[in-house]
Design a protein around this nucleic acid. Structure first.
Lengths: 195, 195
DNA sequence: CGAATACCACTACAAGTAAAGTACTACGAT
DNA sequence: ATCGTAGTACTTTACTTGTAGTGGTATTCG
């Protein structure tokens, strides 16, 4: 088993792109080699088997999709309001559009989770933590709405991203940005926090 | 090319189950044969190639997931209210839980849509029509809320179903039914129609 | 009523494809 | 000089597909 961490990262990024572009069906060692631009057989030397590759790709996807520290700092410093929440959702949309493959790979991994308990645990833990962090920051920061508001927002945003990435022409009357705006307007109350 | 419609339907149902259980990676003619309990080579005789199989499975999934006529009639006869909307969402959840594989296959097909324009068109057309029908019925029926309400509800419900089917333990504090209830409470205004 | 025909189920085969794993050589860094 | 890695090449295995061929059944026509 080879150890070069830089190359390992490159292979994981390639695996994420392969997942997004060719689906779980296309995720083979050789396909990852090709996508990473390394000679055939390399991925074999870095991952014991397909499951191991999937698992590590699942962990790496969150690194790629995480918000920048800079944005988080700015968000936490702001005056809590519905408008700030709107900007937060817009930033999420922007990040996903900037790394379309990352989020598509996450969707592929969600479906793989039905078959691989290891991946299910990994994704559940990470996504659950992210959601709970969002709830905590929202409530402690004094943003308008309660837990249900945040959870509903999370679900609607998930639906929007799925729709936008897989069947963009279903919601073609609206560009996704204004769709986000109107979604926030429906879900988040206007005033300060309810509780 | 064989024509027996009963057998064709059985093969399509088997294809949907294979998609859900083994993913796009596992969808081969032989796997469909095995799942349908027919001798090997049968699916080859009913579908020209894999794309054709996917396309017809995509069309058939909507047949499996469609609400019963009986429910629709009862819904249309009811007095419009947030409570009725809640029951409608609960029924959707019930249907999806009753045909878990159908909805999972739909998610697999959504991801395949990124690669097959034919499937993308098929799914876009059907899902778009369904959404627009929901909007129309909601508004014409005098249910509370406007277009944004219905679209937001659709997106949140999509997110909820994705979450519930792929990573059920992310939202484990709440059983999905009460989650639906609270989601509707957040999104749909209490009173009669706003416009 | 019987025979012919058309369709289908099922078995079996043949060939092609691709994926995985590993052995081997060369190279570079320590 | 040695250890770990890059890169190449080969072998083996497994899987998938497509189709030919056979036998059975239902339907239609004389």
């Amino acid at each position: 088993m080879r150890q070069n961490p830089e190359r390992r990262r490159a292979l994981l990024n390639a695996a994420i792109d392969v997942l997004a572009e060719d689906g779980a069906r296309g995720l083979t060692f050789r396909a990852v080699d090709a996508r990473a631009g390394v000679p055939g057989g390399t991925a074999s030397n870095y991952f014991a088997n397909r499951s191991e590759l999937l698992l590590q790709a699942g962990a790496h996807v969150h690194v790629r999709l995480a918000p920048t520290e800079e944005f988080m700092a700015r968000f936490l410093d702001s005056v809590p309001s519905r408008e700030q929440t709107r900007l937060g959702m817009r930033d999420l949309l922007r990040r996903v559009e900037a790394d379309r493959n990352g989020y598509l790979a996450l969707l592929e991994l969600r479906l793989e989770a039905n078959r691989h308990p290891g991946i299910r645990e990994e994704l559940t833990r990470t996504i659950r933590w992210t959601l709970e962090e969002n709830v905590r920051r929202h409530l402690e920061g004094g943003f308008p709405g309660d837990r249900n508001t945040v959870v509903t927002l999370y679900l609607a945003m998930t639906g929007l991203l799925v729709e936008h990435l897989t069947l963009p022409d279903v919601l073609t009357d609206d560009d996704p940005e204004s769709l986000v705006d109107r979604m926030v307007a429906v879900i988040v109350p206007e005033g300060r926090s309810a509780r």
